[in-house]
Simulated scan of single mutants.
Amino acid sequence: MATDPALLAHIRDLFAGLGPISTGRMFSGTALYVEGDVMFAAILGGTVWMKSDDSTRAQFDAAGSRPFSYMRGSGPREAASLMSLPDSAMDDPDEAMQWARLSLAPARDAAIRKRAQKARKLARPQAER
């Protein structure tokens, strides 16, 4: 299912304080990027998911957020690297920005790891690729 354009516009407005936001396809939804390749949030299944890691998980848990989950052949899987944006933030730009700023550190760390992985892959001899 594609992301509802009205929801995407609303989310872009909520996070406008981060600066220019670009988007890309992610599964059947939309990934939200700042600073070029820093994916700080995604819209999947009508829910906004914020980038998270061990340093931010407790704050998301305390706010009632839940981890992204999906089905695999072996059963349900959880991806705690994406936590739901608390419902209260959907209509409160100030609160939404607090969550977006919290998500930036894990998002930047993930982008750094992804860039390094890409560089290693490009550095391998053609025969190994």
Rank of each mutant, 00 (worst) to 15 (best):
A119G: 03
R120C: 11
K51N: 10
A123W: 08
T47P: 06
R25T: 12
Y33M: 10
A80K: 10
A9G: 02
K118H: 11
S28F: 11
D61T: 11
S74A: 15
S88F: 04
A116N: 09
M50E: 09
S88K: 10
K51E: 14
G17L: 04
Q117N: 10
G29E: 02
A123T: 10
I43M: 00
P76A: 02
R25D: 06
A2D: 13
R57S: 13
D61I: 11
A42P: 00
P125R: 13
L104F: 05
L102H: 03
V34G: 05
S84F: 02
S65L: 01
I11R: 03
A42Y: 03
I112F: 11
T3V: 08
A2S: 15
E128Q: 15
L8P: 00
D91L: 07
G45E: 12
A107M: 00
A123V: 09
W49Q: 02
G29K: 00
G36I: 07
L14T: 01
V38S: 10
P86W: 00
W99Y: 04
L85F: 02
R120P: 04
L104T: 07
P67N: 04
D94Y: 06
G45M: 07
T47N: 14
L102M: 14
R113T: 07
I112E: 15
G64C: 06
P20Q: 15
Q117I: 06
R115I: 00
M26D: 05
G29L: 06
F60E: 02
A63S: 09
G73P: 09
S88D: 15
A62T: 09
A6W: 04
T3N: 04
R57V: 10
R72I: 07
G64T: 14
R25W: 04
M97E: 06
D61S: 12
P20V: 06
I11V: 15
M71L: 11
S28I: 08
A9H: 09
R108C: 05
A89Q: 01
D37C: 05
Q117S: 14
A58K: 11
D109N: 15
Y33A: 05
P93M: 02
A62V: 08
R77V: 10
D4S: 04
A100Y: 01
S22Q: 12
A96V: 01
S81F: 12
A105R: 08
S84E: 14
P76I: 07
G46D: 10
A79K: 11
T23A: 02
